[in-house]
């Protein structure tokens, strides 16, 4: 029975992420277009909103190219393992007060831990491509994603400390509006670290198109490439939703269905901010990226943690 439910949730999560990725790509194209003085998609559907619907069959029917020297089995299945963890991590998101698809006592930990499996898949795909640029990208990605786990977890820890629970529903329930100013720095750290986690600009060093062409997925095409892209957008959606839930009180000030909508609106705002940042800033170099992580973000997150601790004591 549990297995069946799990399977159904999995299907729903995949569908949600796929649909979300489609909308996310459209939204990103529109946002980036406006930032760059363009219109973006405008031909298919109202404001080009059906553009991605047209793109999906294109991706499905594209030739699936496997490089001759690639490690075929790993090359073919690595994209699944990139996409899978992101989809799974969605289940713990508290969509509204009192309801999450999977209500587990270690939900926050689950959300932080499971997507990290992606690193292995990225490394595998990079390695399997048998391509110098891909390998470089994969190595960069590994270093970057593992490093940024630390400030990200520390930032979330501030909220967990305040709520006193790792259960996302409990966190949402305990959330108070004054947490927002208190944990603003934590949110910024979470925001930055999440961007780095999902390999988006200005931290898209693993896939830096001006240096590594497309990094670890340079050799992928068609639907396999699309699963990398969906993983990126899935991670963006998951991080936005989770950030909105933890740092902005989920559906607060509403409950029920209106709460879900409020959460989604908050998530979209965070997502737009992620895009805004990507389309404004240049990319860091990887040594700068690492030093930024260890020398700036991690200490800052620790300071935030201390501040929260002091506040807790003072309360």
């Amino acid at each position: 029975m549990t297995l069946l439910w799990g399977f159904l949730w999995g299907v729903a999560a995949v569908a949600t992420i796929a649909g979300g990725a489609i909308l996310g790509v459209w939204w990103e194209r529109k946002v980036s277009a406006r930032i760059q003085m363009r219109y973006g998609p405008q031909q298919i559907g109202p404001f080009g909103s059906l553009q991605m619907i047209a793109d999906v069959p294109k991706l499905l029917f594209k030739e699936d190219i496997v490089p001759a020297l690639a490690d075929k089995a790993i090359f073919k299945y690595a994209p699944l393992f990139v996409f899978g963890p992101v989809a799974v991590s969605m289940v713990v998101i508290p969509f509204t007060a009192g309801w999450a698809p999977l209500n587990t006592s270690v939900g926050v930990l689950f959300f932080l831990a499971v997507p990290s499996i992606e690193v292995i898949a990225i490394l595998l795909s990079a390695w399997a491509s048998h391509n110098t640029l891909s390998t470089l990208g994969g190595l960069r990605a590994t270093a970057q994603m593992i490093s940024y786990e630390v400030p990200r977890s520390l930032a979330v820890l501030a909220i967990v400390l305040l709520a006193g629970s790792l259960r996302p529903l409990d966190v949402v329930a305990a959330w108070r509006w004054w947490w927002m100013p208190l944990t603003f720095v934590a949110f910024v750290i979470y925001f930055v670290a999440s961007i780095a986690e999902m390999n988006r600009g200005p931290f898209d060093i693993p896939e830096a198109e001006s240096e590594l062409v497309a990094g670890y997925f340079a050799d992928y095409s068609g639907m396999r490439w699309a699963s990398f892209m969906m993983a990126e957008y899935g991670a963006m959606i998951a991080a936005s939703l989770f950030g909105a839930a933890l740092f902005f009180g989920g559906g607060w000030p509403f409950g029920g269905a209106l709460g879900v909508i409020t959460l989604i609106v908050k998530a979209i705002l965070i997502m737009t901010a992620i895009m805004w940042v990507k389309w404004t800033f240049p990319r860091l170099r990887q040594d700068q990226l690492m030093s930024f992580c260890w020398k700036a973000l991690t200490p800052l997150a620790l300071v935030q943690l201390v501040v929260v601790g002091v506040v807790l004591v003072w309360l």
Binding site: R34, I35, Q42, W276
Partner: peptide, 22 residues
């Protein structure tokens, strides 16, 4: 400088695009 950059892109995104609306 980061804030300035975000401000510039935000301002430009409110302007009319220079490309044509086909």
């Amino acid at each position: 400088s980061l804030v300035t950059g975000l401000g510039i892109t935000a301002r430009i995104s409110t302007e009319k695009p220079v490309t044509i609306r086909y």
